[in-house]
Design a protein around this nucleic acid. Structure first.
Lengths: 221, 221
DNA sequence: AAGAAAGCAAGAGCAGTGCTCTCTGTTGTG
DNA sequence: CACAACAGAGAGCACTGCTCTTGCTTTCTT
């Protein structure tokens, strides 16, 4: 099993998710294709294993980055999370694409196995905001107003994550979350255009600072 | 040719990009597979045609939305662009995934044919910011400072697009651009989680307002 | 220790894919 | 009327996911 996942990861990195082939994995394993089906039910099952492995690895990287930052340095923790995500994504673009890119057609990740590891990053972000808010160091703006239609959903999110955040902060938290991955995706997927920005790390660092302002974390420049 | 692209679009919408098959298109066309190769050199060529068609359609939608908004209502124009992008993306998720999701493995869009239609949205956004700035209605913040490493790239972008924007505004413009598509991608690709937000349109509308603030467009609430 | 049961891999096979090649029939043009 | 261009058919190669049967080896049980 470990060998299959390991070789699968290598193929994912070199060929991409859609080109991931159980037969090729079997070849590299020195075994006939049908033998692999004894351990992995299907190609989708292998994808699921890789998805879980990817979420786990990303979560570990984020946690490792957070371990080096003072828990009360909220802005520093947001920067650490963002930087860890970007660094990992640039190093493992195929894995990043599998997790955060277009869904693989015909494949649906089984929620009961992937939501756990899949929510570690947003969990870390939410934790930063919750701590900042608890410390009275989260500037919660009043404008623009949060649409009333979102009140129920926000209440559910608050309940589910056990978060103590006003709607305004929650809304901006969601935006910053999406924006963060939007920036990473643009870079990893080449949306900025060929060689548009010579130093994408510097661009991303600046974007993180602006996003920290957006979510209401006080500047510590 | 038109039939091939039309059927290809339909397959893209129903099966997804990676499952796009020239043979299936040929079947639907009532013709043997090799006959299609007379018109389309390869599967990648068909993908390119679809990419161009998608960029064109999105660009047309954005332009149509902009036509209904006062050219001096800069904030309204940003909202119009964002809403048009989101509406189109929700309606055509497969096409959106092809254009803005993970790159199809092994496929590289020929820049000389796709950059033109592919830059219409960012062109429209840049136009909004340029007009707002020319009218003195773009609040350009001083914090956080733009990294010096980006000066050269920004100068190149300014030159290439013929933009009259200070680095600060340009940097935030790029961020808002990426964040906008990040929000749309999160919704279309289901990253928010299953049925997290009952009214994603309302969420997106709020996000657009915050992003308008981020880029420095004055509130017209 | 002997036999049964489980585990494991091989191989053939089906239906699908992209793509190339050759062959035939049609159509337009000088 | 002849010739060239065009269009499609069909076979074929190497690949894919996946299933089924066959046979060997290891392990467990009596």
């Amino acid at each position: 099993m470990a060998d299959i996942v390991r070789i699968g990861r290598r193929h994912l990195a070199t060929e991409g998710a859609a080109a991931l082939s159980l037969r090729a994995v079997a070849r590299d394993l020195g075994v006939v294709s049908s033998a692999v089906y004894r351990y992995v039910a299907s190609r989708d099952e292998l994808l699921t294993l890789l998805v879980i492995a990817g979420y786990d690895e990303l979560g570990d990287e984020v946690d490792a980055a957070l371990a080096k930052v003072d828990p009360d340095d909220h802005r520093g923790r947001l920067v650490a999370i963002g930087t860890a995500v970007r660094t990992w994504a640039v190093r493992e673009p195929a894995m990043y694409a599998l997790l955060f890119g277009s869904p693989v057609p015909g494949y649906h990740a089984p929620a009961e196995r992937t939501t756990g590891p899949g929510t570690r990053v947003i969990g870390a972000l939410a934790d930063v905001w919750a701590r900042a808010h608890a410390a009275g160091r989260l500037r919660v703006p009043e404008q623009p107003p949060v649409p009333a239609a979102l009140a129920a959903s926000f209440a559910a999110v608050r309940r589910e994550l056990g978060l103590e955040l006003p709607d305004q902060a929650l809304a901006r938290g969601v935006l910053v979350w999406a924006a963060l991955f939007g920036c990473v995706s643009f870079e990893v997927f080449g949306q900025y255009g060929p060689d548009s920005f010579g130093d994408p790390a510097a661009l991303f660092a600046h974007q993180l600072q602006v996003l920290a302002d957006t979510v209401g974390l006080p500047p510590t420049r």
